[in-house]
């Protein structure tokens, strides 16, 4: 640029704004109250929850959850009758068994986390929705919580609600008030197990969705991470008669923790990892997923999509 032009640009820069362009100045900034900043995540979570809940897969999976619930309820009813009638010394499966991880619900919860979680961040990355969120007084952490909570709630609907209802049914089937009181911890156990199961399924799904723009890649990656260690671990565990091949199997750890919480003994001949290992695995998985999400989002700069 010539010196003359540089000078020209410099002079233009200090020029006052053109006068007379603003005529009425009728604008007054909003002086009213704002909702608390910490509640922003609720707006994101509420919207995401409503959006996810009306998807076909969410409706289908929630309807499908009724099947294991009914099957387990019938089995529990039959077993509770047999259990009451069985003469001393005769082995009958405890009806409490049906409360712990009702048959098939973990697979359904996994599928729900897969569908609901996979798009949470990846869809926003692909569509460029960050530019809407982060041009507002929304922090990365509020966004993160707002994205995890709906997946967690939906997953809990399958992971927790059937077991919880079955635990209430179990109490209802007991013959006396004293026995109800004795079995009351069963309800608490369903809440703990359901929450752990939902956390361990939902949070990693959302974390993985922050790694790619493509929902299908996220779903594929999540399915591999969940299914491969589970299937391989189960096979090698049977072959070697050792629980260690299931070290990276999420269902194995959840089941192990559930047995501990429900105080259910292992079936004869089966072996499980020490409970503290399962607890540590679950804690590491959830904390690691949150850390990954936070790392991916904390430095988000919204570059052109």
């Amino acid at each position: 640029m010539s010196a003359a032009k540089a000078n020209a640009a410099k002079q233009a820069k200090v020029m006052p704004a053109k006068e007379g362009t603003i005529l009425d100045r009728g604008y007054a900034p909003y002086q009213g109250l704002y909702t608390p900043e910490a509640s922003r995540w609720k707006v994101i979570a509420g919207r995401m929850l409503r959006m996810s809940a009306r998807q076909w897969w969410a409706i289908l999976l929630m309807i499908a959850t009724v099947i294991p619930l009914l099957v387990c309820a019938v089995q529990m009813w039959i077993m509770s009758k047999l259990f009451a009638m069985a003469p001393p010394g005769v082995q009958v499966t405890s009806p409490d068994t049906y409360v712990m991880l009702p048959w098939g619900t973990m697979t359904l919860a996994f599928l729900l986390a897969l569908f609901a979680g996979a798009g949470q961040v990846s869809d926003d990355t692909r569509a460029g929705a960050f530019q809407f969120y982060f041009a507002r007084p929304v922090t990365r952490d509020q966004y993160l919580v707002g994205k995890v909570v709906p997946v967690l709630v939906l997953t809990m609907f399958i992971a927790l609600v059937p077991a919880f209802l079955l635990s209430l049914l179990r109490l209802a089937l007991l013959p006396s008030g004293a026995e109800v009181l004795k079995k009351l911890p069963l309800v608490g156990a369903t809440l703990v197990t359901g929450t752990v199961e939902a956390l361990v399924l939902a949070v990693p799904a959302v974390a993985i969705s922050s790694l790619s723009r493509k929902r299908s890649y996220v779903q594929g990656g999540y399915a591999i991470l969940y299914l491969l260690p589970w299937i391989m671990g189960s096979i090698f565990s049977k072959v070697t008669r050792s629980p260690w091949p299931t070290l990276f199997s999420v269902p194995a750890h959840v089941e192990n923790l559930a047995r501990f919480v429900y105080r259910m003994p292992l079936p004869e001949g089966e072996r499980a990892l020490p409970v503290w290992i399962s607890a540590a695995f679950v804690a590491l998985l959830v904390a690691g997923s949150f850390a990954l999400l936070r790392k991916r989002l904390s430095a988000v700069e919204v570059v052109a999509s």
Partner: peptide, 23 residues
């Protein structure tokens, strides 16, 4: 760029984004 949720109505989207401003 777009960056909007196709499943939402226009009113739902603008309402949600306005809520994020603290209303």
């Amino acid at each position: 760029h777009e960056g909007t949720y196709e499943d939402l109505t226009g009113l739902e989207m603008v309402t949600a984004l306005t809520e994020l401003h603290g209303f």
